[in-house]
Nucleic acid binder design. Structure first.
Ligand SMILES: [Zn+2]
Ligand SMILES: [Zn+2]
Ligand SMILES: [Zn+2]
Ligand SMILES: [Zn+2]
Lengths: 144, 144
DNA sequence: CTTGACCTTAGAGTTTACTCCAAGGTTTAT
DNA sequence: ATAAACCTTGGAGTAAACTCTAAGGTCAAG
């Protein structure tokens, strides 16, 4: 049994984080001592490990809650249930990557079109593109 | 001159958004009518266009504020100033993409390892990987 | 003259995942 | 006995970009 500070140190998290996870229903200490202190079992510690690993691969706390609820009822759950959560997340991640790659391409085009020199920004292709309704990017700076 | 609702409709944004942009110093209406109504000029409308285009390519409102402050003082700014903002953003976007691609790879490995069938989640490789300290992923489900 | 569509302000609520603070109780060590 | 290092609760604050509500002023039409 670990007190909150011990568990927190073991996993290098803030004690407030553990209290927060408890409030969110992710990690409820298996017992409370007579002095009111939260007492975490090694099963609790294992669960915290799962939470942190899941977090590290991009799951939100809400996703993790779903995952943990499957965990505790493994016997009555199917591989399908688990895989759906992962695939759902994968879809979200892919969508976000696509969005960022679109940003990336636009930004790169803007960057490439600007000389980046000490010329006046009056003729900067980046500003011109942002001002133009068609968002046209000239191929390069055209300072006189 | 447009009233707030007219401008909002033209650009398909919420009037609250325009008031918010004003509070943030991004788009201050060029005049206020005697009845207290905000009055936007066509220059204001043009600025709103710039804001929305910049947003569409991934700039935060804070980035956009910087960009607009360069815009209004173009004459005393250099291409370098503008390009730095864009390149900075590009770095951030690239970093975020890298992070998400790491998530993506982990999620894909997990997904690929799970049969996704109606087998019991007891033997699900995804759950096993999350439980294992080394985060080991078996190559495939091994239901008996 | 009243209805409805506008507009105003100030301020609260949303989301996510914490993080910090205050005020106080408990335990351990000296 | 007392200080240091724990622990408790409740509640506030953070970022970002809105979005909504309440309570009320303004304006054009019928
Ligand atoms: Zn240039
Ligand atoms: Zn330039
Ligand atoms: Zn399986
Ligand atoms: Zn499985």
């Amino acid at each position: 049994m670990y007190r909150i500070g011990e568990l927190a140190k073991q996993f290098d998290v803030n004690t407030d984080t553990l209290r927060y996870y408890e409030k969110e229903g992710l990690l409820v200490p298996s017992s409370v001592a007579s002095n009111g202190y939260r007492m975490y079992s090694s099963a609790d510690a294992k669960t915290l490990g799962v939470i942190l690993r899941a977090k590290a691969i991009g799951f939100s706390l809400s996703d993790i809650k779903t995952l943990l609820s499957i965990e505790v009822d493994k016997a009555n759950k199917e591989c399908l249930d688990v895989k759906l959560v992962v695939d759902d997340k994968l879809d979200q991640v892919n969508a976000k990557i696509d969005e960022l790659q679109t940003f990336q391409r636009s930004l790169k085009r803007l960057s490439d079109a600007c000389c980046g020199g000490h010329e006046s920004a009056q003729d900067c292709t980046i500003l011109q593109a942002l001002e133009s309704e068609s968002f046209t990017i000239l191929s390069e700076c055209h300072h006189d």
